[in-house]
Computed example of a mutant assay.
Amino acid sequence: MTELRTDRLVLRRWRDTDLAPWAAMNADPEVREHLGEVMTREQSDASVALFLEEFDRRGYGWWAVEVLSTGEFAGFAGLDEVDDEMPFSGVEIGWRLARPAWGHGYATEAARAVLAHGFDVLGLPEILAITTATNVRSQAVMRRIGMTRDPDGDFDDPSAPAGPLRPNVLFRITPATRS
Rank of each mutant, 00 (worst) to 15 (best):
T2S: 02
T2I: 12
T2G: 00
E3W: 00
R5S: 09
D7E: 15
D7F: 00
R8I: 02
L9I: 00
L11V: 01
R13S: 11
R15C: 08
T17N: 00
T17Y: 00
T17F: 01
D18K: 04
A20P: 02
A20G: 01
P21D: 05
P21H: 01
W22A: 01
W22M: 05
A23G: 02
M25T: 00
M25N: 12
A27V: 00
A27D: 11
P29V: 06
P29D: 03
E30W: 07
V31Y: 15
R32W: 01
E33W: 10
G36P: 01
V38R: 10
R41H: 15
Q43S: 10
Q43W: 03
Q43C: 08
Q43K: 08
S44V: 03
S44A: 14
D45L: 00
D45F: 14
A46M: 07
A46F: 11
S47P: 02
L50P: 00
F51A: 13
F51S: 11
E53Q: 15
F55N: 11
F55K: 02
D56S: 14
R57H: 12
R58T: 12
W62S: 14
A64W: 12
E66R: 10
E66D: 03
E66N: 09
E66W: 06
V67D: 15
L68Q: 15
L68N: 11
L68G: 12
S69Y: 03
S69H: 09
S69L: 08
S69K: 14
T70D: 01
G71P: 03
G71Q: 02
F73M: 10
F73T: 04
A74F: 07
G75V: 08
A77Y: 08
G78V: 04
L79W: 08
L79K: 08
D80M: 14
E81I: 14
E81K: 13
D83K: 15
E85A: 15
E85S: 13
E85G: 14
S89M: 07
S89D: 15
E92K: 13
I93Y: 10
W95R: 03
W95G: 05
W95L: 06
A98M: 12
H104A: 13
G105V: 10
A107F: 04
T108R: 09
E109T: 06
A110Q: 10
A111T: 08
A111S: 15
R112I: 02
R112H: 14
L115G: 08
A116M: 01
A116D: 15
H117C: 05
H117V: 04
F119A: 11
D120M: 04
L122N: 04
L122I: 02
G123H: 05
L124G: 05
P125Y: 06
P125M: 05
P125K: 02
E126L: 10
L128Q: 09
A129V: 03
A129H: 08
I130R: 11
T131P: 07
T131E: 12
T134M: 06
T134Q: 13
V136Q: 06
R137W: 01
V141P: 02
G153A: 10
G153N: 05
D154W: 07
D154A: 07
D156E: 14
D157G: 09
D157Y: 11
D157M: 10
D157C: 12
P158L: 07
S159Y: 04
A162D: 14
A162P: 09
G163R: 03
R166A: 13
R166Y: 09
P167R: 09
F171N: 07
R172M: 06
T174Q: 04
T174C: 07
T174H: 06
P175E: 04
A176Y: 04
A176P: 03
